[in-house]
């Protein structure tokens, strides 16, 4: 699959609040990470194509979250964290001088493991929070809120209580609210770090449906511990593993079907068949 050429110099028109037909192409090149002097990730190369859901799998502590956080420059929020390599968004290094940090984070959104809506804000304000944070003006704020909530599959549940505080929603609803909040700033890429690990099966299914509906509009990268989930939602899959006292590495990656049905590496086979991790 080839990535479409996107012209990133054009200004955002208001109606573009609902983003274009395709997300961006994200590529990690030789990414290594340290916390202090401890190297936790080594030489990761993954290309996350537009229109494709990429799943990152592997046992706990092998550096999946760390890698994900290098993809939108959240990694550097940890004071002792450092990294090497580069991350390209449509060919431009997000760590380069050409892209502003806030712009990188707006274009590469993130949904966290623990739902983190702003609890004191109303549901509507939560969805629109990113607009305020990025200083963006939209002509049709209500329309954008509705569209974002619809895309996150939450509209029907909250349409009558948009002015209620977000803290009153269930965990699954809060997580979808966070997805809506990320979508409202029209990102090219959406990173999800175990978005369902704190949720019940029904909420999990709703979010998986949402992911499948979004995948043609936004490039999605999802970390998951759930093998079935990886198979249900992703088309590309990368298996991370860290040997004892060694940094995490990508052991194997490829089309999800192939990785699960016919893994090349015995460690991958063991992991996807639930023999460890």
């Amino acid at each position: 699959m080839t990535a479409p050429e996107l012209d990133h110099t054009r200004p955002m028109a208001p109606q573009e609040a609902v983003p274009g037909p395709m997300g961006g192409v994200l590529e990690g090149v030789d990414v290594s990470c340290w916390f202090g002097s401890r190297k936790v990730l080594e030489g990761v190369n993954i290309k996350m194509d537009a229109g494709v859901v990429t799943a990152l799998i592997g046992p706990s502590g092998c550096g999946k979250s760390t890698f994900l956080r290098t993809l939108n420059r959240m990694h550097e929020l940890v004071p002792i964290a450092t990294l090497a390599g580069s991350v390209l968004l449509d060919g431009h290094d997000i760590y380069g001088v050409g892209l502003r940090l806030t712009e990188v984070r707006r274009r590469i959104g993130m949904v966290f493991q623990k739902p983190n809506p702003f609890p004191a804000m109303t549901i509507a304000d939560n969805v629109a929070a990113g607009l305020k944070l990025t200083g963006k003006k939209v002509a049709d704020r209500d329309g954008l809120i509705e569209a974002s909530l619809r895309r996150a599959g939450l509209w029907n549940e909250v349409r009558n209580r948009l002015d209620a505080p977000a803290g009153g929603l269930s965990g699954g609803q809060q997580q979808r609210l966070c997805i809506a909040r990320s979508l409202a700033v029209s990102p090219d890429v959406l990173l999800m770090d175990e978005p369902c690990s704190a949720l019940d099966p029904t909420s999990t299914r709703r979010i998986e449906e949402t992911i499948l509906e979004l995948k043609d509009q936004v490039t999605i990268v999802i970390v998951t511990h759930n093998m079935q989930q990886a198979q249900r939602v992703s088309q590309h899959c990368a298996f991370f593993l860290a040997a004892e006292n060694e940094p995490g590495r990508v052991i194997e990656q490829g089309p999800t079907d192939r990785l699960f049905s016919d893994p090349n590496d015995p460690r991958t086979a063991d992991y996807v068949n639930g023999r460890f991790g």
Binding site: L77, R105, G109, N116, F118, A129, G130, L133
Partner: peptide, 18 residues
């Protein structure tokens, strides 16, 4: 929650106010 604000593209000041 602070990370949530930053991940939306907010500045540090935006994170503080929100």
């Amino acid at each position: 929650e602070c990370e949530g604000a930053l991940a939306l593209g907010g500045t540090r000041w935006g994170m503080i106010t929100s």
